[in-house]
Amino acid sequence: MFSRILVAVDGSESAKKAFEKSVYLAQRCNSKLDIIHVVDDSTYGGDSATTFDLIEELEERGKKLLEQCKSQATRNNVPVETLLELGDHAQVIIDAANKNDYDLIIMGSRGLSAFKELLLGGVSFKVMHHARCPVMVVR
């Protein structure tokens, strides 16, 4: 049914549930699972050393989160790759999905930036409307 699945993770409860659902589905469909974490580098503006340090710290946290997810998926015999990207959350997920011909994107309904979502529209909403493949949003 789905040979390639992309799941977006950010450490939120919603994303954790989406990840668990993606592992379950990948097991059942014998799918390859790619896990993506996006660090939004546009929010921190400026070229100061503090900005670079903050982005570097967020990248390190992302790497740890991806390693935890990879470990869990591997324990469940799911082939997995991880992607750590910089940029706008929604656009990076859309671009990755379209470039790599995924059969399904799985993501949480609310990420860590709930206030920003209220102002600008949710990441999941943007991905649902611009990705070429089906999108499963997990609550």
Rank of each mutant, 00 (worst) to 15 (best):
V137H: 03
S14G: 15
L120W: 05
I105Y: 00
D34S: 13
F125V: 10
Y44D: 13
A131W: 03
Q68E: 06
L33V: 00
I35G: 08
S31Y: 01
K70T: 06
A96H: 14
A131K: 07
S48Q: 08
C29D: 07
E57R: 00
I36T: 02
I55L: 15
D41V: 11
V92L: 00
I5K: 00
V38D: 09
S42W: 03
E67I: 10
P79H: 05
H89I: 12
N100K: 14
K99W: 02
S113P: 01
N98S: 13
A49K: 15
D40Q: 13
E56Y: 11
N98L: 13
R28F: 11
R61W: 06
V80A: 10
D53K: 05
N98E: 12
L66E: 03
L112T: 06
S3D: 15
R139W: 01
M1W: 01
L84S: 06
E59I: 05
N76I: 05
M107I: 09
L65M: 12
V23M: 05
V39M: 02
K126D: 10
D103G: 05
S113R: 08
C69W: 01
G111P: 04
G87S: 10
D40V: 11
I93W: 06
V23S: 06
S113I: 00
E59W: 01
Q72F: 09
K126C: 02
A8S: 13
E60Y: 13
L65P: 02
A90D: 14
S14Q: 11
N76T: 07
Q91V: 04
L119W: 03
N98M: 10
V9Y: 04
E60R: 15
D101R: 13
L104M: 04
N77Y: 08
G108F: 05
Q91R: 13
V38F: 09
S109N: 12
L104Y: 01
I55Q: 12
N100Y: 13
H130L: 13
D101C: 11
L58V: 03
E117H: 09
G111M: 09
G121H: 00
D10I: 04
K99G: 03
L119M: 07
K64D: 11
S31D: 09
R132V: 07
M1I: 04
L84E: 07
N76C: 14
K17A: 10
P79Q: 09
V92R: 02
D88R: 10
Y24A: 12
L65W: 02
N76F: 13
V9L: 09
A96V: 15
K116M: 10
D10Y: 02
V38H: 07
K17Y: 05
K16D: 15
Y24D: 14
Q72S: 11
V138Q: 10
N76H: 15
L66S: 06
M1S: 12
L65H: 03
R110H: 07
V123L: 03
I5E: 00
K126W: 02
S31N: 08
V123D: 02
